[in-house]
Amino acid sequence: MGNSTFHLASITKKVIMALVGLFLVMFLLVHLGLNFTVLILEGDREIFNKAAHFMGTNLIVKIVEVGLFGFLIVHIIVGIVLQLQNWGARPKRYKKRATTQLSFFSRYMIHTGALIFIFLIIHFSDFYFKAKFTDLVPLITYDGKEYHDLGLLTLQKFKMGGFVIGYIIAFILLGFHLNHAFQSAFQSMGWNHSRYMPFIKKVGLVISILIPLGFTIIPLVIYFSEAYSV
């Protein structure tokens, strides 16, 4: 994929980034919705664990999951290719540089992206890979059927101060990334319209605040509340 990606037209690459990025935003919203159910303690985290089980076993979800991983990889590869070309387009840098721009965080997409990727590796090895490929996740029985107790694993992680801080930092970075990404995706697809763009920019801003806020409220509640002692 690498070499042929270099030869795609610049706008084609941008459109790929936009479409895939917007899909990943949708996934974030679904993931966030599921995460909130971990705060429901009744029935030994039954809703969260059953939801996680559904996401891990349902055929349609599994097909979408393959697409999700594929899209994530495409987003990363195309993003890196774009960045390499952009760095290469100015071999000799300016000595003195004053910066102005309309979108500040666009300057740091590769950096925030790389740090989010590191978070994803840790995240996958903590939860996803552990549940898929190892027996390290404790089991719990509801109505005579065994489930992975990912809820317990989550609560344990969110009681660890260092993990919570790292988690919050990762989502602040994601917020920075989304702050540019959402409105930029519409611009890349050519949907910059005098009537709709101000609204799209506002939605982008709200999303870049609410998604990280939603994700980080959960560990904060768990960390500081006695109710979630495990």
């Binding site: 610049s10 387009a89 910066t99 666009s106």
Partner: peptide
């Protein structure tokens, strides 16, 4: 666009500079 890409300009990141 094809010529623009060919001659070695970078890609747009919608930064707005």
């Amino acid at each position: 666009v094809a010529k623009m890409d060919e001659v070695g300009f970078g890609n747009c990141t919608n930064t707005g500079s």
